[in-house]
Computed example of a mutant assay.
Amino acid sequence: MTFVTKLSLESGDRAVLEETVTDIKQFLERKGAECRGPFNDPPQHLSVPQYRNLSPGDRFSPWDYPVYSRRLEIHGNDHIARQIGHRDFPPSLHVEIEVEHRKPAGHRRS
């Protein structure tokens, strides 16, 4: 059974996101891990309303900002994927890690 570790990284700071993804990719290449990606998703543009006080009505203009995201897949190499998961990521970065079991092609259920 092969394990696939999927990393999803999101940030409003594109430079920090790109630097972190580049560091992860270089680390995986040095260790000889099989990696697919980074896959780029189109940026999301979010808008947050801002109020002058706690009562409804009087508002500032909304706060608009982009969120950039990248995805990576690490195939096999569980110990290397675990090292990535234990890294200290920048506070402006949101990281999600998902581990999936994949059975080899032609594998039958018992």
Results as ranks from 00 to 15, higher is better:
I24Q: 09
P42V: 15
P62K: 00
P42M: 15
T20K: 08
F39A: 01
D78Q: 07
V95Y: 12
R109P: 11
D23S: 15
A105H: 04
E96N: 09
R30L: 14
E29T: 01
L28K: 13
S110N: 07
G37H: 08
G37M: 12
D78L: 07
Y65Q: 01
D58S: 06
H79I: 00
P91Q: 05
V99Y: 10
L28N: 12
R52L: 04
E34C: 04
R87D: 08
T20C: 10
N53A: 07
E73N: 06
L9K: 06
T22S: 11
R59E: 02
P62I: 00
E73G: 03
I97C: 03
Q26S: 07
S61T: 02
L28G: 06
R109F: 12
Q83V: 03
P49Q: 09
G37A: 12
E98L: 04
I74D: 01
H75A: 03
C35E: 04
I74H: 03
K103I: 06
S69R: 11
E10R: 13
M1T: 07
G37I: 02
G12D: 09
V99H: 05
D88S: 01
L46G: 00
G37S: 11
R36N: 03
Q50S: 05
H101E: 15
H94D: 03
L93P: 12
P104K: 13
H45C: 13
H79E: 11
R82A: 06
H107M: 14
I84H: 06
D58M: 07
L9R: 11
G37W: 09
L72W: 01
R71L: 01
Y65H: 08
S61Q: 08
Q26D: 15
L93K: 01
I24L: 11
K25G: 09
V67F: 03
E18V: 01
Y65C: 00
N40H: 13
R59D: 00
L46R: 15
T5M: 12
L93N: 09
R52V: 12
I84G: 06
Q44W: 05
A81N: 04
Y51G: 00
E29R: 11
P43H: 14
I24H: 02
P90N: 03
F89K: 05
S55D: 08
I24E: 05
R102S: 02
I80F: 04
W63Q: 11
P49W: 00
P62Y: 02
V95D: 01
L54A: 09
S47E: 10
R30S: 13
V16I: 07
E96S: 12
E29L: 06
F60V: 03
S47M: 04
E19G: 02
G106D: 01
D13L: 01
I84F: 04
I84Y: 08
S8Q: 15
N53F: 13
H101W: 01
R30G: 10
R82E: 12
Y65V: 13
R52M: 11
F39Q: 15
Q83S: 15
P56T: 12
Q26C: 07
T22R: 14
R14S: 04
L46N: 07
P38C: 14
V99I: 11
H79K: 10
D41G: 10
H86P: 05
Q83L: 15
A81G: 14
P49A: 00
V48M: 07
E100N: 10
G76D: 02
V95F: 08
S55L: 08
F39W: 04
L7D: 00
K6S: 05
I84W: 00
T5N: 08
